[in-house]
């Protein structure tokens, strides 16, 4: 365990410098003067200013917001199911979003990216609602049944998506955009619409840390303490829908963060959600920012897929954390 306040402070500083790096470095190197002027005295004819304002700012903001949202959603999924292998995808979120987007490409002919984002979010919500409905048994939501229902629904939605892809090959090229996951090319408006939700939900989650801590106990103990775990679980599920469903809708499938960042954070600050939630959010945002910035330099002029970069940076760090520290889950 590391003491929390210096860690939080250090992480915030790192996030700020990563944000600055993401704005400055890339195929076009931006000087500090240009970077400053792009915000204070914007000149639409300057290439540097346009790159910063149109391209890089939305990209850095997307990485930060999505990284944080996925990490918090990961913490919640693992707490909700008391399972170290759980990730937001477990609740059917990814599979549901993909299926709805595939349906959109095949039958709806939507024109705007925003339309697909909303459709993806709708899919994530429908899938998660179905998982909860199936898991609900005699007024109880047991972690085991959430896991089983999630696995089953995930399998079914994946199968349906594959069925659509077989029937209509053209859909695949449209889906690739979401399958790979990316933080580039999203408009600032899309991120701007999602960011307040992430902030509010994360704060609400942090405020309910004590209730979430109770979910880690077994159901009998929690009930004995007079807490209705059954009221917390649907609320936590709702938070996962907003955070992870929104992330999939905005940036597509970005793996690794939702599964592994919570574990890394737990190694650092333990299982108490009061510390775990903010530290996870910061690590998630930091990791995605760094990964996105580095992805521009590995195989120029192409960019490395973001999933490869997050794994390349995150895995060595995580393996060191896991094999050195002795913390029980």
């Amino acid at each position: 365990m590391v003491s929390t306040k210096p860690l939080l402070l250090g992480l915030i500083l790192l996030v700020f410098s990563a944000f600055w790096m993401s704005l400055s470095f890339g195929q076009t190197r931006i000087s500090q003067q240009d970077l400053w002027q792009a915000f204070t005295a914007f000149d639409a004819t300057s290439v540097e200013h346009t790159v910063v304002r149109i391209n890089r700012l939305s990209r850095a903001a997307t990485a930060l917001v999505i990284g944080a949202a996925l990490a918090v959603a990961g913490v919640l999924s693992q707490t909700l199911t008391r399972n170290a292998l759980a990730s937001p995808g477990l609740l059917g979120i990814n599979a549901g979003a993909l299926m709805f987007i595939a349906i959109g490409f095949t039958w709806l002919n939507l024109s705007s990216l925003l339309g697909y984002m909303l459709l993806g979010f709708l899919g994530a919500t429908v899938a998660t609602a179905l998982v909860y409905l199936l898991a609900w048994q005699r007024g109880l939501l047991s972690p085991l049944r959430i896991i089983l229902a999630g696995a089953a629904c995930g399998a079914m939605f994946t199968a349906l998506t594959q069925g659509i892809l077989i029937a209509d090959q053209a859909t695949l090229s449209g889906l690739v955009y979401w399958l790979g996951g990316s933080v580039a090319g999203r408009s600032l408006e899309a991120v701007g619409a999602f960011a307040p939700w992430v902030l509010v939900v994360t704060i609400l989650v942090w405020l309910s840390s004590r209730l979430l801590n109770l979910l880690l106990l077994d159901d009998e103990t929690a009930a004995g303490l007079g807490q209705s775990v059954n009221r917390v679980r649907p609320m936590a599920g709702l938070a996962v829908i907003v955070l992870a469903g929104g992330s999939v809708a905005v940036a597509g499938l970005i793996g690794f963060i939702g599964l592994i960042v919570p574990h890394a954070a737990r190694r650092l600050v333990g299982t108490d959600h009061r510390r775990l939630v903010p530290v996870s959010a910061l690590i998630g945002g930091l990791l995605l920012l760094l990964a996105d910035t580095l992805s521009r330099f590995i195989i120029p002029p192409q960019e490395m897929p973001i999933g490869v970069m997050t794994a390349a940076i995150g895995i060595p760090v995580f393996l060191v954390l896991v094999t050195r520290r002795q913390v029980a889950l």
Binding site: F256, G307, V308, A311, L319, T323
Partner: peptide, 22 residues
């Protein structure tokens, strides 16, 4: 430990596969 290292290895190998495909 097996669970944590396992998911980590899985992500790592999946990333290498994506890299090879790219």
């Amino acid at each position: 430990r097996v669970v944590l290292v396992g998911i980590c290895l899985n992500s790592g190998f999946a990333a290498i596969t994506t890299l090879l495909l790219v």
